[in-house]
């Protein structure tokens, strides 16, 4: 079994206009930088992108937005990207703002064969409009449906030829959930290793969920808000 492809260009084979993609990451942490670059290069358009954030103006998903390749975004927070906010307010970009926990669970449910679930998040707000409500233990909950995605692009720290993945730090976030959910899951890793090198006890995403894996290159791993504390003088 060998799911390795050469690079991002090979990895995105089969992407077409108007598809729905999931893209991992929280802010710029854990975003599939190589896949995004390849998608920008491919010039496909009309995309629906499911991703917690929209990158910043000149990095991450912001690159796809700059070239107007995205028709619809499904996210929980888009505050860091001015282009996004502008395209949204002007009506150029369709946006479905979804509570972060609901977004996460819609990805997980998709991969887990759970077609829909109830959550209290968003009850009494715009998010609940048009949705079924049911009470559990006297508390109203909204019916939310699992996502469907043609491709899921995820970024991991280490992965092996079989598609097993390990993530590092808070770069994990949505990646394991989206990895489960994509019809085709493409994983890019900082370190591609041989089966047996990753301890089975510490694998975060079992390879069964991953269809293609490649060794990523030139990771910028940009920091959005570099915050530090002063060293105490000894």
């Amino acid at each position: 079994m060998n799911k390795v492809v050469k690079n991002a260009t090979e990895a995105i084979q089969g992407v077409e206009n108007n598809m729905t993609f999931m893209l991992g990451g929280f802010g710029l942490s854990g975003i599939p930088e190589n896949a995004i670059a390849a998608l920008v290069q491919s010039n496909i358009t009309g995309l629906t992108c499911i991703s917690n954030n929209a990158g910043v103006d000149d990095f991450g998903l912001g690159l796809l937005l700059q070239k107007k390749q995205i028709k619809k975004m499904i996210s929980s927070y888009v505050g860091e990207n001015a282009i996004f906010e502008q395209q949204m307010l002007s009506g150029e970009l369709e946006v479905e703002l979804t509570p972060q926990g609901t977004l996460a669970e819609k990805c997980r449910a998709a991969g887990a064969g759970i077609p829909a679930f109830y959550t209290p998040a968003g009850y009494g707000t715009e998010v609940a409009e048009g949705k079924e409500i049911k009470e559990f233990n006297g508390k109203p909950h909204i019916l939310e449906y699992a996502f469907e995605a043609d491709f899921a692009f995820v970024k991991a720290w280490k992965g092996d030829r079989l598609g097993n993945l390990i993530f590092k730090g808070t770069a994990r976030n949505f990646n394991p959930l989206m990895a489960m959910a994509g019809k085709i899951t493409v994983a890019e890793v900082e370190e591609l290793v041989e089966p047996g090198e990753l301890d089975p006890n510490f694998i975060h995403t079992p390879g069964v969920f991953v269809q293609r894996i490649f060794q990523g290159v030139n990771y910028e791993k940009r920091i959005e808000n570099r915050t530090t504390r002063a060293r105490e003088n000894s």
Partner: peptide
């Protein structure tokens, strides 16, 4: 319209 992030989950629960 920056979005609700995790706020709705937090306040609902």
């Amino acid at each position: 319209v920056k979005g609700m992030g995790g706020a709705m989950d937090l306040v609902a629960s």
